[in-house]
Amino acid sequence: MLNRLSFCFAAALAVVSWIPNSAHAEDPILVEIDTSEGAIILELDKENAPLTVANFLEYIKKGHYAGTIFHRVIPDFMIQGGGMDASMKERDTLPPVRNEGANGLKNDEYTVAMARTGDPHSATSQFFINTGKNNGFLNRSDPRSDGYGYAVFGKVFDGKEVVDKIEAKQTRSVPVPGAGLMEDVPVEPITIKGVKVMSGAAE
């Protein structure tokens, strides 16, 4: 009986010692969006959205986001940025990334997803942070979606209060050169000073 108990105890120790090694096999990818309203830290989901995360990291590496703004803010829906400067001029972008809306991630509150046009595979640098609790219609699996959805690739790890502060800003409609009138633009520009990788991926 003693030998059997000793074996079981040894086996249990082996299992316990194995779990931490597996759990810490890869650090999460954390990036900091430094805004004029404070810092927002995102945790990116490379496992479920590898193409989208790689695309986002490439823009970070190129310094694309420094000086862009959150140009579209809609309460109880989302805050969108990453493509225009304070003069509402759109930045040059890389080729579009393939839509990963079928990855199982949902447009839940405080998740981050790719902005795009009516073309499901048109996302480039612009992203949005969901602030609404009822954004399920943006998911590919929802019958109200266009069959592709908006690809979620991470979530807010820290700085939700900054997201809330941005969401509460007063907005207006402004003319955009070559694109007509854009609604829901913050009256006072909300600047993205820069975006940097904090952990989990090389800059």
Rank of each mutant, 00 (worst) to 15 (best):
F70V: 01
L57N: 08
D85R: 08
V53H: 14
E37Y: 08
G67M: 09
I79C: 11
V31Y: 04
A66L: 11
D85N: 15
G67Y: 03
E58L: 07
P75W: 01
G67Q: 11
P28M: 04
G63H: 01
A66F: 00
E32H: 10
T35E: 07
R72V: 04
L42E: 05
S36C: 08
L51I: 13
K61L: 03
D85V: 10
A54M: 10
F70K: 02
G83E: 15
A39V: 13
I74W: 00
L30F: 11
G38I: 03
E43H: 02
I79Q: 06
P28W: 09
A39D: 14
E37T: 01
T68N: 15
G67I: 10
H71V: 03
V31C: 08
K62D: 14
G81A: 10
K61Y: 10
K46F: 10
I41C: 03
L30I: 12
S36L: 04
K62W: 02
L42R: 05
E26I: 06
I40Y: 02
L57F: 07
M84P: 06
K46M: 11
V31D: 02
I79T: 07
E47L: 10
R72I: 02
D34I: 12
E47H: 05
D34E: 14
P75V: 00
M84R: 15
I41Q: 13
K46Q: 15
E47T: 11
P50M: 14
P50A: 15
D27E: 15
D85A: 09
L44E: 03
L51K: 15
I69N: 10
G67H: 09
K61M: 04
F77E: 00
I40P: 05
I29D: 06
Q80K: 10
T35D: 08
S36T: 12
G82E: 07
I41T: 15
E47I: 05
M78H: 01
E37M: 14
M84G: 06
A54R: 13
E26S: 12
E58S: 13
F56G: 15
H71E: 09
V31F: 04
D85K: 09
A54C: 13
E58H: 07
L30P: 02
Y59M: 11
G82W: 08
I69W: 02
F77C: 02
F56E: 14
E43M: 12
I60D: 09
E32V: 08
G82Y: 09
L44Y: 06
L51W: 08
G67T: 12
H64P: 10
K61S: 13
F70T: 04
N55Y: 01
D27S: 11
G83L: 15
K62L: 13
Y65I: 09
